[in-house]
Design a binder for these strands. Structure first.
Length: 275
DNA sequence: AATGGCGCCTGAACGC
DNA sequence: TGCGTTCAGGCGCCAT
């Protein structure tokens, strides 16, 4: 499932190849989470800028002769972006296509929880609204251990739910939250506001280390995710707890447990992770 | 105000 | 074998 590492890997494998290109056509398939917000013809002739990332969103700036804007893109749960010179005919799950002089950019998304939305700028509606509630970027130096601990103390829910909300730190979804909590030795059921300062510092480091490792491994491919070259990720093979219910913990050898928190699976080691 | 839960959507896995 | 059910989860939205 695309979380921050998968989105960043997509950006890395896409940005340089598209930057400076020109849009020659755009096509829509089945509806995505939200409408595009402009006729696809609106994109014709626009010059492509440097793709950036905010949380799990990508922003593709598009410059016209006398106007500008861009596309805010989200991969949802099953989306991936592919750029190819001569792509195969569009398939059942290809729902957006941007034909450019650098190749054809295509969003493939079986479940259609993804989105591509036109916005006149990243800091005006609708992009600004969609990004408004996002917490700090995990690798932002301004996110200090002290600031992170302060934000934890303000939440009365479990640490799992708090991290998943994306309001304390963006980018970690169900896989990487389970992995980071294991690496930090923190029980996912622990009350967010009861995490001590030293443990919160360890958690922040674990989140950063887990996300960075996942980016370097090309993300996780559980089923659908591919980078813009069509390559799958390898982090899932390094996962210590996610998807490993009943298997022995790599630290203590005890069985890894699966519980459900907020309708979502959490994997953890009850022995190594403490409240 | 903060928090928990729902529903969107499809394909794979599972059970009888 | 085949059909129905359950599960996966990012995230806006709604209810409490």
């Amino acid at each position: 499932m695309p979380e921050l590492p998968e989105v960043e890997v997509t950006r890395i494998t896409l940005a340089d190849r598209l930057n400076g290109g020109r849009v020659t056509a755009a096509r829509l398939g089945k509806p995505l989470r939200w409408p595009l917000g402009c006729p696809p013809e609106r994109l014709h002739g626009l010059r492509i800028g440097a793709m950036s990332r905010r949380g799990k969103y990508l922003w593709l700036p598009l410059q016209g002769a006398d106007d500008a804007g861009g596309l805010l893109m989200h991969l949802g749960m099953s989306g991936s972006l592919n750029l190819a010179d001569a792509p195969p005919p569009a398939g059942l799950h290809d729902h957006f296509e941007l034909v450019t002089d650098r190749g054809t950019l295509r969003l493939t998304d079986p479940r259609r929880f993804g989105a591509i939305v036109w916005s006149d700028a990243i800091d005006v509606a609708p992009a600004a609204q969609l990004l408004a509630r996002l917490g700090p970027e995990p690798f932002d130096p301004a996110l200090t251990p002290a600031a992170f601990h302060r934000s934890l103390r303000a939440r009365r829910t479990t640490i799992k739910a708090a991290l998943l909300s994306g309001e304390l730190i963006v980018g970690a979804g169900n896989i990487y939250v389970s992995e980071a909590l294991f690496r930090a030795g923190i029980d996912p059921r622990a009350r967010c506001d009861k995490i001590s300062r030293p443990r919160s510092e360890k958690l922040l480091a674990a989140l950063r280390q887990t996300l960075a490792q996942a980016i370097s491994l090309g993300g996780s491919t559980l089923r659908d995710f591919r980078d813009a070259h069509g390559m799958s990720g390898a982090f899932q093979e390094q996962a210590l707890v996610y998807g490993r219910e009943g298997q022995p913990c790599g630290h203590c050898g005890g069985p890894i447990r699966r519980i459900v928190q907020g309708q979502r699976s959490t994997f953890f080691c009850p022995h190594c992770q403490r409240r």
